Amino acid sequence: MGGQLYVCGITPYDATHLGHAATYLAFDTLGRVWRDAGVEVVYAQNTTDVDDPLLERARDTGVDWRELAASQTDLFRSDMQHLRVIPPDHFVAVTDVIAPIGDAVATLLDTGFAYRVETPDSDVGDDVYFDVEAAAGSTSWHLGIESRLDAASMLGFFTERGGDPERIGKRSELDPLLWRSARSDEPSWPSAVGEGRPGWHIECTVIALQHLGRPVSVNGGGSDLIFPHHEMSAGHGTALTGETFASHYAHGGMVAYRGEKMSKSLGNLVKVSELVAEEVDPRAIRLALLTHHYRSDWEWFDDDVFAAIARLTHWVEWAGVAVDGSGETALLAELRAALADDLDTPEAVAAVERAARSGGAPTSVDLDAVDALLGIDLRRSTSARS
C-alpha cells in the first residue's frame, strides 16, 4: 500500500515564515502518520524558481534572479531541516523541468484543450492558455469540482492570485496561462511550443505526473491555493491523462500576525530562520505550530514562543526519568487516535501534556512515539532563547 503526496512548494524570493512552516508541518505530520501505519510514502514538492514575484524582487534588489532563487531555496531547506520536516523524495525546481512542461503544453494544444493568444509584446510567438470550457465538456473535470466556489468568487480569487481575466483574445476570462512566450527582458527557454517559460499551474501538474502515481493520494498546500491553483492543476492533469488528478485535497489554514495574514507582500513576517538565529530551540517552534489544527486560521503572538519553550522544557524534564518499555502504551494509543482524526495535533499535544503532568514516568515507547509522530525529540536538553 502506498501514499502519493504532492505539496505545492515555495516561490523562493524571501525566507520561510511561520505560515509556510505550518503548512509543511501539517503534511510532514500526514507522512509520519502514514509511515507509522505501514504505508510507503512517496512525496514530491516543487519550487517555483522562475515566476513574476521572484523576477520583480530580483529587479528591485539588483540581485540576479538565479542567485536569489538559489539562496532562498537553500534557506528554505535549512529551515525545514531545523524543524525536522522529513524532506520530499522528489524536490523539483521548475527550471529543471522546462522541456517536459513544454511537451505537456504541446499535447494540450494538439488535443484541443489549449489555444494561442496573440501576443504583440513577444517577438517569438504567442502565449498559450488552457481552455476551461473545452476541458469541462470533454473530461470528468470542471470548474468548482474541488473549490465548490460560485462564479463571482472564482473571478475574484483568479484576479487576486495571478490571473488575467481581462486579457484580450482569451476564450473565457478564467482560462489560465499555460505558457508565456518570451519577452525581451525576461528569462526564457526553448520548448516544444516555442521560446518562453511556464505558467504557474501546469508546473505542479507535470512534476506530480512525473514522480507520483495516478491519482495522487493527497494534493496539499495552503488554503490560498484551492482556487485557482489546485483546481487548474487538476484540470490540466485530467486533460493530459483522462484520469482523476488527485483523490483528496487538503489545505492548511492561514497564519496572521499583527492583525493581518502573514505574507511576503505585506512584509508582516515571523521567519523561522530569524527565530533560530535568536537561539530559539527549533523544537519549540515546531511545538508552537502543532498546537493549532492544520485547517484553522489563527494568529501568532510574540509571546507564543515563550509558552512553547516552557512547555518543551517541562516535557524534556519528564522525558529525563523515562524507563524502558515495549508494546503500545496508553500515550501511543492516544497519539494515534488524535492524529487519525484529521491530524488533530492540538489533541495530540494535549495528550502528551496530560502524560507529562500525570506524575508517572514515561517509557521509551512514549518518547519514541512523540519523536516519530510529532517530530519532537525529547531526549535532548532544552536550549532556550538567549
Rank of each mutant, 00 (worst) to 15 (best):
V7W: 06
D14F: 00
T16Q: 01
G19Y: 01
G19C: 01
G19P: 04
A21M: 00
T23K: 01
V33S: 05
V33A: 07
V33I: 08
G38R: 04
V39G: 02
Q45Y: 12
V50I: 09
D51P: 06
A58E: 03
V63H: 13
D64F: 01
W65H: 14
A69P: 09
R77E: 14
V97D: 09
I98Q: 01
P100D: 05
D103M: 10
A106I: 03
T107G: 10
F113A: 11
D123A: 11
D127K: 03
L143G: 03
L143P: 02
R148P: 00
A152G: 09
F157C: 01
F157P: 00
E160M: 15
I168P: 11
K170A: 06
D175Y: 02
R180K: 14
R180A: 13
R183Q: 14
E186Q: 12
S191E: 09
V193A: 12
H201W: 04
I202M: 05
V206S: 07
G220I: 05
H229N: 13
A234E: 02
A234I: 10
E243M: 14
S247T: 13
G253C: 08
V255T: 10
Y257C: 05
K261C: 00
M262F: 02
N268R: 04
S273D: 11
A284I: 06
D304N: 14
D304I: 05
H314Q: 14
W315N: 14
L332V: 07
V349M: 12
R357L: 08
R357K: 11
S358G: 15
L367I: 13
D371P: 00
L373H: 01
L374P: 03
L378M: 08
